[in-house]
Design a binder for these strands. Structure first.
Length: 316
DNA sequence: AAATTCCACAACCGCTTTTCT
DNA sequence: GAGAAAAGCGGTTGTGGAATT
């Protein structure tokens, strides 16, 4: 597009932020809020580019950021989500409250990645690099109790790919509504010109995005959106299981009931919907994806040494 | 004690996507 | 609808402290 990047202006400071600069930025954001970062440096009295200010705020200064060592549970979540999603740091971060994508990315590159390699696992595929290498670590003698069972991850990934090839959803866990489950499902979207390999279905809808649905049976206020993909929104009130369609800049909801060939059943979702997401809405969304709620992805491999309850269900 | 290496993490860079006009 | 600006994202690099030689 030929526009000048905001940081191209000469004479701007780079490198580590000083405490004084942090104070200025925090004071400015607390007083005026964030947004329009390009104008922030001038108004805050900083010799930085707007992009640098934005990153500093998002990754370091924001008050609700959790810093410090990752817990065992966070570690497990990262590994398992990475096995499913790859380097989708922002999506992974959405499932780790108060952690930033940058922090998770750094943690992955400096810690987890090396650990997987040491264990003989490919950090990209999470599968053993060489046959038998894994046995040294997965022998079940308690040595690695409470660490991820990477055999499970490999099995999961294999089953997921198979499910994907068939356009189905992969589900882990028992069918009891009290047992935790994880469902990886496809989000239906409008046809995209470049997605020629997607699966076309009725109403010219194409399933070409995934949602990893996580929720809890026990804590209805658990602050995790059922939608893993930022910016995707769900209907506020509905008792029908439906489909989501991406209509340009907005996402709409199409009910299964009385679906017609026209767009008359499509209802617009308010832009401020996500920020006002209520537990009731989460329930609707989860229902919409035909899933049940689960404690967390960590529950997947807890108390089960052999992927007990693994099954695949046709979803769409 | 000085030099070197290693490591974690903050920050930058370039690109893409979304929003605004 | 087009172009510009802003925001978002992920890969990579730079920096400083700790550990090692």
């Amino acid at each position: 597009m030929g526009r000048m990047p905001c940081c191209e202006k000469g004479g701007l400071k780079k490198g580590l932020w000083t405490p004084e600069e942090d104070k200025k930025l925090v004071a400015y954001v607390e007083k005026h809020g964030h947004g329009n970062w390009r104008s922030v440096p001038d108004k805050a009295g900083l010799e930085r580019c707007g992009k640098s200010c934005r990153l500093r705020w998002i990754n370091y200064l924001k008050p609700d950021i959790k810093r410090g060592n990752f817990s065992m549970e966070e570690d497990h979540t990262i590994i398992q989500l990475h096995a499913l999603l790859g380097n989708k740091w922002s999506i992974i971060a959405a499932h780790l409250p108060r952690r930033t994508d940058n922090e998770i990315k750094n943690y992955w590159n400096t810690n987890v990645k090396k650990r997987l390699i040491r264990m003989g696992l490919d950090p990209v595929t999470h599968k053993p690099i060489k046959p038998n290498t894994f046995e040294r670590y997965g022998g079940g003698h308690g040595q690695f109790k409470n660490t991820i069972n990477t055999n499970h991850v490999a099995q999961w990934e294999s089953a997921r790919m198979e499910a994907e090839a068939r356009g189905s959803v992969l589900q882990v866990g028992s069918h009891s509504s009290h047992q935790p489950q994880l469902v990886l499902s496809k989000i239906p979207t409008q046809p995209c010109p470049s997605s020629s390999d997607s699966v076309s279905t009725k109403h010219n809808t194409v399933y070409n995005m995934y949602a990893l649905v996580l929720a809890t049976n026990h804590d209805p206020l658990w602050p995790v959106s059922p939608l893993s993909i930022p910016g995707w929104k769900v209907p506020a009130v509905s008792t029908n299981v439906g489909q989501f369609t991406n209509t340009g800049s907005s996402l709409s909801y199409e009910s299964d009931v009385n679906v017609t060939e026209t767009n008359s059943q499509i209802q617009k979702i308010p832009e401020n919907y996500l920020s006002n997401l209520q537990d009731e809405d989460i329930m609707v969304a989860v229902e919409a994806f035909r899933t049940i709620r689960c404690e967390s992805i960590l529950e997947l491999f807890r108390g089960s040494n052999d992927m007990e309850g693994l099954n695949k269900q046709s979803f769409f």
